[in-house]
């Protein structure tokens, strides 16, 4: 058999019912201890991810959007247990990832792959492209013998828009966009069900970024992949996302179906993020909500609502009460005392 079998599209008509989640994250918390200024100073923690819950249905893409320090990357890695979460539960395909031993976790990870932001740092410069992609095949003993593995690598390269004879080349011979395709091929090699894409297009030029976003869209459609897509700006993920979660200082501020979030944002932070994105139209009416100041240090977050120090509509109650995510209906939830 050739490697093309693994790239066979899934038949959408017999897909799982939409309500069944492949990945379900409940109350995930990842806290990092920080050393105090003096040896006997009280111990403090950074709540990098605080009480994160989300569900990702099969074949769906859920995006986590936030600025620097929002905890989006830590959230992604905690979901895969690349960072050990402090508490909470991650259910993947019926398994509780937190309960798995090392061997079982390794087997589960075959089904969960990651695409990194930096296509320059995430490929080993001393390995050929073929070697990089085949590594996962070897590790998980996929394919019958080397010839079959080579066929699989060739099929994968073609699947991501490269050509089979790129196999013998090395990462430095490729541009950023091509390397990111290699990273995607490597992730696909082990036939995962789930991909965590951690800012996969942030380092790419605009004309190339669109190519890679379209490739991810094709892969989701053809292979029925499920994805969590991490991004720092809302415009990049609009085309791809089924749902979007907006994070700020470790907490989800708002989560909704993509169309609903863009058309009808409820949280003042989501509104500000949407309005801060530069519009590529000169003279476009910009009702910009200019946020005051900067994201506070996560070591010392504001009391109550973490966004209140920059919030245009914060009131006195926001300093004392931490808002929980309130469901507004149709899967739209917002963590704001003033809204909803």
């Amino acid at each position: 058999m050739t490697g093309s079998a693994l790239l066979k599209p899934t038949d959408n008509s017999v897909a799982e019912p939409a309500d069944e989640a492949l990945l379900s994250v409940r109350n995930l918390c990842t806290y990092f201890p920080v050393r105090g200024a003096t040896p006997f100073a009280p111990k403090r923690v950074v709540k990098a991810v605080d009480n994160l819950s989300l569900e990702v249905g099969r074949g769906k893409i859920v995006s986590i959007v936030g600025e620097s320090g929002s905890g989006k990357t830590t959230a992604g890695r905690s979901i895969l247990r690349l960072i050990e979460p402090t508490s909470g539960q991650v259910m993947f395909d019926g398994m509780d990832l937190g309960q798995l031993g090392p061997r079982a976790l390794r087997d589960a990870r075959r089904k969960m792959q990651i695409i990194f932001q930096d296509p320059f740092a995430s490929l080993n410069p001393r390995m050929s492209i073929g070697g990089i992609i085949a590594e996962g095949l070897k590790l998980h003993s996929i394919g019958e013998g080397r010839a079959d593995q080579r066929d699989r690598v060739a099929a994968l390269l073609e699947r991501v828009g490269l050509s089979a004879d790129h196999m013998r080349r090395y990462p430095h011979e490729f541009s950023g966009g091509q390397r990111q395709r290699v990273g995607i091929a490597r992730a696909l090699a082990v036939e995962p069900d789930f991909i965590l894409a951690d800012e996969p297009v942030s380092a790419l030029d605009v004309s190339i970024q669109a190519q890679v976003l379209n490739l991810l869209q094709d892969l989701r459609e053809d292979l029925g992949l499920t994805m969590v897509f991490i991004a720092h700006d809302l415009s990049v993920v609009e085309y791809l996302s089924d749902r979007v979660a907006v994070m700020y200082l470790g907490r989800i501020m708002e989560i909704a179906d993509a169309r609903d979030l863009y058309a009808n944002p409820q949280h003042p932070y989501t509104e500000a993020l949407l309005s801060a994105a530069p519009i590529p139209e000169p003279g476009a009416a910009r009702n910009r909500i200019m946020l005051k100041g900067e994201t506070p240090s996560p070591i010392d977050p504001p009391s109550g609502c973490v966004f209140r120090t920059r919030c245009p509509i914060a009131g006195p109650e926001c300093a004392t009460t931490t808002p929980d995510l309130k469901p507004l209906g149709k899967g739209h939830s917002v963590a704001c005392l003033k809204r909803g």
């Binding site: 970024q209 976003l213 869209q217 415009s235 609009e238 085309y239 863009y262 058309a263």
Partner: peptide
Amino acid sequence: IPRLGSAPEGVSHPRLQA
């Protein structure tokens, strides 16, 4: 360029023009 609010209505998995 991905433009905010430009995702076409009624298209399930829209593509950008690359």
